[in-house]
Amino acid sequence: MKILAADDHQLIVDDLLYSIKQLMPDAECTGTSDPDLIIPLFKKHRFDVVFLDIEMDDVNGIALAQKLQKIAPRTNIIYITGYEKYALESYKTYASGFLVKPIDEDMLKDALDHLRFPVSNITDDMLIRQSQGEAVIGRKIQKYREERGLTRNEFAEMLGCVMPTIQRWESGTRVPDVTMLMHIAKVLGVGVEDLIG
């Protein structure tokens, strides 16, 4: 998940980023206290969630959110402000949340748990590793096969496939389909979640 924290006070940005990383260590977090950088950063990174102060120097956060949503309509905007009076106005942008400063961890967790547009926890890095042969599934298939003392030929015979197929799975150049994954799990005596977790 890609997250941007924007507030005109750097200390608030730093505190917010720290709290987010405590809750979501795998999130890619960026922060800025310069309102002029928000749109360029957003265009470059296409954040899934934007924490946005409503009152920044000469910038209205609600108007800024509308600009961000024109670029990417499914952006989760979570407003942060010291003024509750903006709550009703902020929902005109169909915000995912409205947090009043100071923001505590429970409020933050609740906002991230109830995003208007849920975000997958599959990262670009996971996809890259999969396509570069560093596949988790292949390593686990090999691990469980070796633990059971099966050669690739024996394993292929039990699955009704050929040995080069086993080699491709274990090297990560190919991934078994769902039906075959269930068959592999059965033969190895493990759950499918053990292979893909």
Rank of each mutant, 00 (worst) to 15 (best):
M1Q: 06
M1T: 07
M1Y: 08
K2R: 15
I3Y: 06
L4I: 09
D7A: 01
D7V: 07
L11T: 14
I12T: 11
V13G: 03
V13T: 12
D14R: 12
D15P: 00
L16V: 03
L17E: 12
Y18I: 15
S19G: 06
I20Y: 04
K21E: 13
L23K: 12
L23V: 11
A27P: 04
C29H: 06
C29D: 05
D34L: 11
L37W: 04
L37Y: 02
D48I: 04
V49Q: 01
V50S: 01
F51N: 03
L52H: 09
L52T: 03
D53V: 03
I54A: 00
D58S: 12
V59I: 15
V59N: 08
V59W: 00
V59Q: 09
A63M: 13
A63Q: 15
A65G: 14
Q66F: 06
Q69A: 04
Q69E: 08
I71D: 13
A72V: 14
P73W: 11
Y79L: 12
Y79E: 10
I80W: 01
I80N: 01
I80D: 02
Y83K: 14
K85P: 01
K85D: 15
Y86K: 05
Y86T: 08
A87N: 11
T93E: 12
Y94W: 06
A95P: 03
G97M: 06
L99Y: 05
L99P: 09
K101A: 05
P102H: 05
I103P: 04
I103W: 00
I103G: 00
E105M: 13
K109Y: 02
D110Q: 11
D113Y: 02
L115C: 06
L115H: 07
F117D: 04
P118L: 06
I122W: 04
I122G: 09
T123P: 14
T123Y: 11
T123M: 09
T123F: 11
D124M: 10
D125F: 14
D125Q: 15
Q130N: 13
Q132F: 13
Q132N: 15
Q132P: 02
I137K: 01
G138T: 10
I141T: 02
I141S: 03
I141R: 06
I141E: 00
Q142R: 14
K143Y: 13
K143W: 01
Y144R: 09
E147C: 10
L150M: 14
N153V: 12
N153S: 12
F155Q: 01
E157A: 08
M158H: 03
M158E: 07
G160D: 04
C161A: 06
V162W: 03
M163G: 00
T165V: 12
R168G: 05
R168T: 11
W169Y: 15
W169V: 05
S171R: 07
T173A: 13
T173F: 04
V175H: 00
V175I: 09
P176N: 06
V178P: 01
V178Y: 13
T179K: 10
T179W: 02
K186P: 07
V187T: 11
G191H: 08
G191L: 08
G191E: 10
V192R: 07
E193W: 08
E193S: 05
L195G: 02
L195W: 09
L195A: 00
